[in-house]
Design a binder for these strands. Structure first.
Length: 591
RNA sequence: CGGAAUGUUGCCUAGUGGCUAAGGCGCCUGCUUUGGGAGCAGGAAAUCGGAGGUUCGAGUCCUCUCAUUCCGACCA
């Protein structure tokens, strides 16, 4: 490809509203163009990178026996009604009508479409197991797209779906993906971590997320350096502090003016926050069935030194949605914000964290402005409808496995794998006949990778102050030739053209900067675009005996003779590819 | 959906009620130059996000609205 012919161009300065490093370089180097919030056009350079990533995806999918299919982006509403997600998902799911007034949806993922396909084509256990996938557009009307390609509304996802007759079969496919995903990310040059995660809107039993650690990430990973435990903070567990046994003391009402927060209360009473009980008022939306949903007022109690984990609470009460309660809803059950506790409250579903339930003699609200109660004890002074773990793990807490200190870091989710089980096959009647002729629900898994997000994370990981440094495996070109023209002599141009032809004939992907630009402009653009190998052809290099060879990101350069260029380039490509290949390892599966 | 910020040419900015909206980058033409974002000369490109208002006069002040970004809620 000749640089002068490329659609798009580089920018010296990034638009002022572009923040994330990957976003800046991708825009400045002419890879992507933002059309609207969370909507991007991909220019030829980006398209080439995407093609390479997709090739790796196809390759790795083939290796675990997946077959490529294609399902549509626009889907009829009835299958989403069948699965229930038509009702469960809010405005993130875009609904529309076709000309015949039929309800349609824009697919945000393809479980329903696949189930509809599977129930028509899978009849017997003899046809199972199966594994199919596609790389298809997803639309999610996200309320807050951000950071360039990190979080967008329309994106391409590689999603595969496994169909099995047994949980053992699912486990096998799940583990195959687990390894396959590491292969894929490593082949793209991205370091990832697999962590246990919440199943969220996907439903199902077990899920892992593949995380790229970066401060711009929106997820928090809790992990233990000592034993290797890790988890998304949403579901991270930890060893609760020991309870100090005490004799239960009688409840006592005391005046606590202006003590609306745990800090103020603990300060005022000169006690540690761990001796208090925090009351959090939430309203949960419970899906009764496909047609009706009800709201449930939740009073959550956690020990004062802990933070409520809303995901854990949501899962504990089986809610579709959870929001903070309004003041009038709180007063309606007889509670007082800032001075709340379950004592004297009617009509609230009380969920108590197991630690708070066991901790003796806590200070809690009196449900009266300006008053708290000393020595509250769960079970004696108030009844819990549910006692379970609902607090958030934090850095500094103890590891649930080995008891050592936990750490926390930010991360971007680039892939996920779900053991769906029969979540969709039961609601959508995806059945097969077993050996006895009996109908059984298919046991499913679903596995996703966001292609654009992967691309941008690779840029986040591989760049310097000058631009992108692509891993050879997904670089838009393998070689970037900088031609420095010389008016007095056509030698440089002739040499460059010759090498350009030779490299292309040898199957090397070359970008030839044939523009009539100054050397500085060309070098800066080369650094920005980030092609891994740079060849400079000019009077100076020819005088030294050939072309200048430089690997992006390294400070060393060398002159190589013209007639050895193709061989040397081939060697270097093989070397860079081997480095990537070495990073691919068999990983231990962690539940 | 809450909080904040910003909208001036393709990009970055100046312009703080008063003459024809200014500069840099980029773009076009010509000359010159070619190893780290060259030089000179000429040129094109803006209904100042949109609507309404205040005013003799609005890019500038007010109201509404739209868009984008950031924080939060949300989300894979």
């Amino acid at each position: 490809m000749r640089f002068s012919r490329i659609f798009g161009h580089t920018l010296k300065e990034a638009p002022s509203d572009v923040q994330a490093v990957s976003h800046q370089y991708l825009v400045r180097a002419g890879y992507i163009h933002q059309v609207a919030a969370g909507l991007f056009s991909y220019l030829p350079l980006a398209r080439r990178v995407l093609n390479k990533i997709e090739r790796i995806l196809h390759d790795e999918m083939a290796m675990i026996g997946a077959q490529e299919i294609t399902m549509p982006v626009v889907l009829p509403a009835d299958i989403w009604q069948e699965s229930g997600r038509w009702y469960q998902i809010g405005s993130e799911l875009t609904k529309l009508k076709d000309r015949k007034d039929h309800d349609m949806v824009l697919a945000m993922t393809h479980e329903e479409a696949l189930c509809d396909l599977a129930r028509k084509y899978v009849r017997s256990y003899k046809e199972l197991p199966q594994l199919v996938y596609h790389i298809q557009t997803k639309w999610r009307d996200d309320p807050r797209p951000r950071a360039g390609l990190i979080r967008v509304r329309e994106f391409k996802m590689k999603d595969s779906y496994s169909l099995d007759t047994s949980w053992e079969g699912l486990d096998k496919q799940y583990r195959a993906h687990y390894q396959s995903y590491f292969n894929i990310f490593n082949r793209c040059g991205l370091d990832v971590l697999a962590v246990k995660s919440d199943t969220g809107m996907m439903g199902g039993k077990i899920a892992h997320e593949f995380m790229y650690l970066t401060p711009i990430g929106e997820d928090t990973i809790i992990f233990c350096d000592s034993c290797g435990y890790n988890s998304n903070r949403q579901v991270a567990e930890f060893k609760k502090p020991e309870i100090v046994e005490e004799e239960l003391k009688p409840v006592e009402k005391i005046e606590t003016p202006d003590c609306k927060t745990i800090d103020e209360l603990a300060d005022f009473l000169k006690i540690p926050a761990s001796k208090t009980a925090k009351a959090v008022f939430m309203v949960a939306t419970i899906q009764e069935n496909n047609e009706t949903e009800t709201e449930k007022f939740i009073l959550a109690i956690v020990r004062g030194d802990m933070t409520l984990n809303e995901t854990k609470l949501q899962n504990a009460v089986g809610a579709k949605d959870l929001r903070p309660a309004h003041v009038d809803e709180i007063t309606a059950v007889g509670a007082v914000p800032g001075f709340g506790s379950p004592v004297g409250v009617k009509g609230a579903y009380v969920v108590v964290d197991d630690l708070a339930a066991e901790a003796p003699n806590l200070v809690g609200g009196a449900n009266e402005e300006g008053f708290h109660l000393l020595n509250l004890n769960c079970g004696r002074d108030f009844k819990a409808d549910l006692v379970t773990d609902i607090v958030a793990a934090e850095a500094g807490f103890r590891c649930p496995v080995c008891g050592k200190t936990l750490d926390a870091e930010k991360a971007v989710e680039v892939g996920n794998i779900f053991k769906l089980g029969t979540r969709y096959s039961e609601s959508m009647n995806v059945n097969y006949q077993d050996e006895k002729g009996k109908l059984q629900p298919v046991i499913m898994g679903s596995y996703g990778i966001g292609v654009g997000r992967l691309l941008s994370c690779v840029v986040e990981q591989h760049h310097d102050n000058y631009g992108i440094i692509w891993p050879i495996t997904i670089a838009p070109f393998q070689v970037h030739m900088v031609l420095l023209q010389d008016k007095k002599s056509p030698d440089a141009e002739n040499a460059a053209e010759k090498i350009y032809e030779e490299l292309q004939a040898a199957g090397v992907e070359v970008l030839l900067d044939d523009r009539k630009e100054s050397p500085g402009t060309k070098f800066n653009d080369a650094d920005l675009i980030g092609v891994p190998i740079r060849l400079t052809v000019g009077k100076r290099s020819l005088d030294k005996g050939g072309v200048e060879f430089k690997v992006r990101g390294s400070n060393d350069s060398a002159i190589i003779p013209l007639d050895e260029t193709v061989v040397k380039i081939k060697e270097q490509i093989a070397l860079l590819e081997a480095e990537i290949a070495e990073s691919i390892k068999v990983v231990e599966y962690k539940e």
